[in-house]
Simulated scan of single mutants.
Amino acid sequence: MTDSDLGGRRNHGKRERPAAAAATVLHEQGVEKTTLADIARAAEVPVGNVYYDFKTKNELVEAAIETRTRGLAGMIDALDALPTPAERLKALIAGWVEQRDTAVRFGCPTGTLASELDKRADGLDATVATLMRALIDWAERQFAELGRDDARESAVALIAAYQGVSVLTNTLRDPELMSTEGRRLERWIDSMDRPLRRSGGASASHRARP
């Protein structure tokens, strides 16, 4: 390992705390209302450090998206350790439901950020779209393993259902909406899994709908 490698790692470590703080503060306050000083306060670092490591707010937004991306990768690794695709999908849904109180206050972290960035002309909307697409791609693999011949459509339907109920949960300030939708989605997954287990194939699974 060279000195330059060490320097790069130190710099990466210095940026991690502000980036993680940015992911949280941007979710809670939105991009427009958040300042670099807000990030410094949340990260408990001098504001000068944040200005040194991130020259613009856009750089901090990109770092926050990178933090969310790493979090998604870690979550997917944990889900992939489960033995069946139905269990993985239901664990994803359970994780969403566990965050219902956060959704009541702030909505979905990725969905709200994507909606806000879509109104800007700086290209960051495409960056956060990559994060959303990665989750859809993962869900598609699970539905394909369940034998769905419409795996992509099912994956989109699942993520769309979550995004939609997140908006309603936040708008109506009602966490039970998320719980109810979570139970419905779990029944949907079960309806696909049972025919597959009975027949040992996918002959009936394609008829299930969300």
Rank of each mutant, 00 (worst) to 15 (best):
T2H: 12
T2Q: 07
D3E: 12
D3T: 09
L6H: 12
G8M: 11
N11E: 13
R15W: 01
P18V: 00
A20Y: 10
A23L: 07
A23S: 07
A23Y: 06
T24N: 06
T24K: 14
T24H: 08
V25D: 12
H27S: 10
E28Q: 15
Q29C: 12
G30W: 08
V31Q: 07
A37E: 14
R41V: 13
A42F: 10
A42T: 15
E44Y: 10
P46F: 03
G48D: 15
D53I: 08
F54I: 06
T56I: 02
T56Y: 02
K57I: 03
N58M: 05
E59I: 09
L60N: 05
A63E: 10
A63C: 05
A64E: 02
A64F: 05
I65W: 00
I65P: 04
E66W: 02
G71N: 12
G71C: 02
G74V: 05
G74F: 02
D77F: 11
D77N: 03
D80T: 12
D80W: 14
D80A: 13
T84I: 05
T84K: 05
A91V: 05
A94T: 07
G95H: 05
P109S: 07
L113S: 10
S115C: 06
S115T: 12
L117T: 06
D118G: 07
D122G: 01
L124K: 02
V128K: 03
T130L: 00
L131N: 00
R133V: 00
R133C: 00
I136V: 14
D137R: 04
W138Y: 08
R141H: 02
F143R: 06
F143Q: 01
A144M: 04
G147P: 04
D150Y: 03
R152F: 05
R152L: 12
E153I: 11
V156F: 04
A160G: 11
A161T: 00
Q163N: 12
S166D: 10
S166Y: 09
V167S: 04
L168Q: 09
L168N: 06
L168I: 08
N170D: 11
T171Y: 06
L172Y: 08
R173V: 15
D174N: 15
D174C: 09
D174I: 06
P175Y: 05
P175M: 04
P175D: 05
E176P: 02
M178S: 04
M178L: 10
E181D: 07
E181Q: 15
G182W: 01
L185M: 15
E186R: 11
E186I: 12
W188Q: 00
S191Q: 13
D193E: 15
R198A: 15
A202F: 03
S203M: 13
S205E: 14
P210M: 13
